[in-house]
Design a protein around this nucleic acid. Structure first.
Length: 493
RNA sequence: GCCAAGGUGGCAGAGUCCGGCCUAACGCGGCGGCCUGCAGAGCCGCUCAUCGCCGGUUCAAAUCCGGCCCUUGGCUCCA
């Protein structure tokens, strides 16, 4: 069955045909590590994660690269805050750590590589040099700008016309540029204090001096422009032409438009074949965004609802549609997840019971499995329709409940097929974690172990070692190893 | 202003590319019942849509065409 995807470049759904029929090169535009990620970012990650998982599932060798932008004035603006350190690098490190933690919690499949801008400056410089040599860029006072009039196709991604465009980039650059829509590839000098202070917390003293990392280049000691990094990093880690470029729809212009221009001007061939844009997450009618302050952080969401519910929420609307966040919508996701999880548990309990027989064959159950698999596959191939894919699994969930409710002697093989369907499609493809791994349960388990250890500690203090040893033995039998130390008891699961 | 996406039941959200299995999926909510010591879960049934508005094409339109209204995003850092 053919996979169809919505390509921003053509504005249409197209059959997915990668350059190499066995491989899929996927680049996801990562985030600027100047803050904790919010649910809108998580939506992009989860959606691109599911895309990559599905591509693998249908047999492609997927190479997925997702970058971290660690050079940015908003990062500089946060230097000096508690726990963040005093340099651009230290702030970036802090948030990279935070983001990776979120990604792990959400059970994202690891990308092949997470390149950072700061480690790709040589490649960026090479690329800028090429663009100058080819006549697509020019130097002005130590900075380098891309000449939008030199690239014929400029505007093809976002539908903009160069003639009708307003100025691009900050006011301060305008005097150096030939055309107001030209954009910076390289900027001379460090971040000007006023540029960073614009984003700086009022609680901090404003910066007085230029700040942030700088690098030597043929034009000046300075910093790479925003857009060039993604071109350089995808070319470095994937190829001059890639198959799928994923990003938030707020990046279509100017970021991705500029990426197209730089990459294609330099390489002389089309850059990404398919541009997939994940529509934005909205709350109360406007997009969730750090600058609007209406965000819910990924960490808080995971803490409150657990990773599976957050994941369910984020796949409950297909990527081509904007999604609304509210108490109601996330609770619906919680219901949907729990319904799926209960059916899975029901199926495993029934399978593992003495009532499951080798020679019982339940046609309705087996048909439901077949149908769920077909519907799931059709949904995913139809532009990664994750909502419809989940629905297919929920229909199987209903079928499992109905079957187990109505039956005394279970069809062992049929139930196993159902379980495997949940695990393969819900687990491997959609990234849900059945059984033990629900964050909430792990946390609860930990809390309960702590409770038991507290009781045991009381027993020890009373000299009731018999009781304490009994508690230790019983925990051990549950797979919890207790170790007493000078600072108190610790445990391992 | 310019560019780009959208407008489907109380909510949320598929279906729109390739018109007819759409008398509109899946779910949440609401109502009734079964089960149950209670609750929950589950099951069964019911509830709720003239698919933004107007016009056109067609035997047939949520789906195609035209006009209008409204919303969101981008044009400044943004997933």
């Amino acid at each position: 069955m053919t996979l169809y995807v919505s390509n921003t470049l053509s504005g249409e759904q197209e059959a997915f045909e990668p350059h190499n029929p066995e491989q899929a090169l996927v680049y996801t535009c990562g985030l600027t590590v100047s803050d904790d990620a919010h649910l809108g970012h998580a939506r992009l990650w989860v959606q691109s994660d599911v895309m990559a998982r599905w591509l693998s599932h249908v047999g492609y060798d997927v190479r997925h690269v997702q970058n971290f932008t660690d050079v940015n004035e908003k990062i500089v603006a946060r230097t000096g805050e508690d726990d963040l350190g005093t340099t651009e690098q230290s702030v970036a490190r802090h948030y990279i750590d935070s983001v990776i933690e979120d990604m792990r919690d959400l059970n994202l499949q690891r990308a092949e590589v997470y390149p950072r801008v700061s480690e790709h400056v040589p490649e960026i410089i090479d690329l800028v040099e090429t663009l100058i040599e080819e006549g697509y860029a020019y130097e002005a006072d130590g900075s380098v700008y891309f000449d939008v009039t030199a690239f014929e196709d400029y505007g093809k991604l976002s539908g903009q016309q160069v003639e009708e465009m307003e100025a691009q980039g900050p006011e301060s650059e305008q005097s150096e540029k030939r055309h107001p829509a030209d954009f910076a590839l390289w900027k001379a000098g460090a971040v000007a204090p006023e540029d960073a202070n614009e984003h700086r917390s009022d609680d901090l003293p404003p910066l007085e001096e230029p700040a942030g990392q700088t690098w030597e280049s043929p034009w000046s000691e300075g910093r790479p422009g925003w857009h060039i990094e993604c071109s350089a990093m995808s070319m470095t880690h994937l190829d001059d032409h890639i198959d799928i470029h994923v990003g938030g729809q707020d990046l279509v212009f100017p970021h991705h438009e500029n990426e197209v221009a730089q990459s294609e001007a330099a390489a002389g061939e089309p850059f990404a074949k398919y541009w997939l844009h994940v529509r934005l997450l909205e709350t109360e009618g406007e997009k969730m965004s750090s600058s609007l302050g209406n965000f819910f952080t990924t960490k808080n969401a995971i803490e409150e609802f657990g990773p599976n519910v957050v994941r369910m929420f984020l796949v409950s609307t297909s990527y081509t549609q904007r999604q609304t966040y509210s108490e109601e919508t996330i609770q619906e996701a919680q219901q949907r997840w729990e319904r799926l999880e209960r059916a899975y548990e029901r199926a495993t309990d029934a399978t593992d019971s003495p009532d499951a027989y080798a020679k019982v064959e339940a046609e309705d159950l087996r048909d439901a499995v077949t149908q769920a698999r077909e519907e799931f596959e059709a949904a995913m191939n139809d532009d990664f329709n994750t909502r419809a894919a989940v629905s297919a699994l929920l229909e199987l969930a209903s079928a499992v409940h109905r079957y187990v409710d109505a039956t005394e002697r279970y069809d062992y093989r049929g139930l196993v097929d159902a379980i495997e369907t949940f695990e393969e499609l819900g687990g491997d493809v959609l990234g849900f974690q059945f059984v033990t791994v629900d964050g909430g349960e792990v946390e609860l388990a930990g809390d309960i172990v702590d409770l038991v250890l507290d009781i045991r500690e009381e027993a020890r203090e009373e000299g009731n070692y018999e009781r304490a040893d009994e508690l230790r033995d019983r925990l051990e039998s549950l797979g919890v190893t207790v170790e007493d130390t000078d600072e108190g008891s610790t445990y391992r699961l």
